[in-house]
């Protein structure tokens, strides 16, 4: 079986998408877990501020999530755009 150039490019794009998503998910996972843990501590210390803390936590998590979203977009580009 002979491999053509296009097939090799497609395979490389698939592998690249997997690696991209795998490494890209590490940072946001750690960051969001850290934020959630700190928010838990905050709620345990001051239960009356639970609403404000939850809201702030969600915003912070959304911001730290953006690197993961970038890697998702890159992975999608590699999967679907590279022919």
């Amino acid at each position: 079986m002979e491999l053509t150039g296009a097939e090799i490019i497609k395979a490389a794009a698939m592998i690249g998408a997997g690696i991209c998503m795998g490494f890209g998910a590490i940072g946001p996972g750690i960051g969001e877990g850290f934020a959630a843990g700190k928010a838990c501590e905050g709620v345990a210390r001051e239960p009356e501020n639970a609403n404000l803390i939850t809201r702030t936590m969600l915003i912070g998590q959304a911001v730290s999530e953006s690197t993961g979203i970038y890697s998702l977009v890159i992975a999608l580009l590699m999967l679907f755009v590279i022919k």
């Binding site: 999530e65 953006s66 970038y70 998702l72 999608l76």
Partner: peptide, 16 residues
Amino acid sequence: ISHSFRLFGNILGGAI
């Protein structure tokens, strides 16, 4: 860019 890609990526990723 990150503001708009965040919403897009989350919804599209969920759908996929």
